[in-house]
Amino acid sequence: MSSKVVVSAKHVTKRFGSQVVFEDVTLDVHKKEVVAIIGPSGAGKSTFIRCVNRLHPFDEGTLEVLGHTLTGGGHSPSREILQDIRTRVGMVFQTFNLFPHLSVLNNIILAPMEVKKIHRQQAARQAMELLALVGLEHKAEMFPRRLSGGEQQRVAICRALAMDPEIMLFDEPTSMLDPELVGEVLAAIRRLAQQGMTMLLVTHEMQFAKEVADTVIIMADHGIVEKGPAAKVLDAPATERARVFLRRILKPTEVAAEAAAPARGRF
């Protein structure tokens, strides 16, 4: 992790209509830093990382991404700035979102060819190299629906990496997967972290967050409630809100027993 800041959010607030999704989010992400964002659902984690590549606009504050400054309110960035950000920031979605009518290979080479104007042969060669890294080169000619969820998500990672991004956004990449398929996707992400990719990772995999993340952020109640080195935030959180959340996640059976206890006493 170097000191160069590549994403810098300052007092960013996002609303849907009158409903606040998150407010006053301030955060710096350094080059090669792996930031895991955890927290209860509805806390605005996914929406926040979608603001980074501006799939969502936001309402207040500023967000600097790779030297470009996005501002809140009605200001739309120019088409060139938008494309520059999206070309240099890759994203992997919870629901994979592969293009079902294109083969695995064509899923991966479409953007390099269309956006970066890379020649088909060269794009295909790079795609096959990426597929080989995740052990899927033999699936290149198949349609996505022939692949398991874990395989589809690994292809989605290849598709994002084919643009040679400087930052990767992961939006709950393993939440839709059967438990036995989670490992293969986490392995691909882990390898990426080891290679020094800057990452923002929304996840519910606490153990994984602890292992790969430099920084862990807990978002709850429309904002960041805790931020710091992974081990510190996860093992010794400073705020009560973070402790409550982590206890629910890590020891769900105890929480359930506590919740049931008063009921038993009442009857």
Binding site: N53, R86, G90
Partner: peptide, 8 residues
């Protein structure tokens, strides 16, 4: 969304 994220 996926297409936009790729810069298409």
């Amino acid at each position: 969304e996926a297409a936009a994220a790729l810069g298409l």
